[in-house]
Design a protein around this nucleic acid. Structure first.
Length: 226
DNA sequence: ATCCGGGATC
DNA sequence: GATCCTGGAT
């Protein structure tokens, strides 16, 4: 009865989360380029604060490749201040746009080829690490590249499917190797992981009412039932 | 292992 | 007042 192969477990966990939280319609952005901007701004930062920065950029009409290209880094830094790390992030934002214009010319052109090769070059752009890279591929480009973040590590180590010391690639492999490569599935799964970790699987766990119940190794063994 | 950082949450 | 946040570079 207890089918414990990774594929089954991953799909069961997905099902439990989806039944609880439903479709979350990620990524919250109007355009693919806005996804890229958000992906950089949200690095180690609460999304609430990123939204404030995005609002500032929108108010100034700066959510476009050309506009970022033409805006001085110091001015960008001031506008994205609420997202934290504004000095490094303004450099990263401009750096990504400069690279994009020089290497591909546009986002559409960037996504036109095979995404595996794109991933290899995108992750080499300064300021674009593996998570930001996969977020751009998945949520801006619709490519089936699974996104791993701190939440994913925390949740799936508590579920006993990965080790806390596993590196990014190792954790990502779990999903890439045991799930069908479908962007809508990866999209929803990562969004559900984030929601689950904000609600329950916090650093300081809030297990009351957790939809995963006994699946988690933190769950207190239930004395009364088998 | 440390730096970058404002803002929300406790 | 302390902690945490959809990381990445050095």
């Amino acid at each position: 009865m207890a089918a414990n192969d990774p594929q089954t477990r991953l799909l069961e966990i997905f099902g439990s989360l989806y039944r609880r939280y439903g479709a979350l319609n990620w990524w919250p952005a109007d355009t693919p380029f806005e996804v890229c901007v958000g992906a950089i701004l949200t690095q180690n930062t609460n999304w609430i604060n990123v939204e404030k920065a995005i609002v500032n950029l929108k108010r100034e009409g700066l959510i476009s490749v050309q506009a970022i290209h033409e805006t001085p880094q110091e001015r960008l830094a001031e506008l994205i201040r609420p997202s934290g790390f504004f000095n490094v992030k303004s450099v990263r934002l401009k750096g990504f746009v400069e690279w994009l214009l020089r290497r591909h010319g546009s986002l559409d052109a960037m996504f036109a080829g095979g995404w595996q090769d794109l991933r290899d070059e995108l992750v080499k752009v300064p300021g674009i690490g593996p998570e930001t890279c996969d977020s751009i591929l998945l949520y801006a480009g619709g490519k089936p590249s699974f996104v791993v973040d701190a939440y994913t590590r925390r949740l799936f180590s508590r579920l006993g499917l990965v080790s806390e010391k596993d590196d990014y690639h190792r954790v990502r492999s779990l999903f890439m190797e045991h799930l069908p490569p479908e962007a809508p599935l990866f999209n929803e799964y990562h969004a559900l992981i984030v929601e689950q970790c904000k609600r329950h699987c916090r650093k300081k766990p809030s297990c009351d009412g957790c939809p995963l119940g006994r699946a988690c190794c933190l769950a207190t063994p239930n004395p009364g039932t088998p």
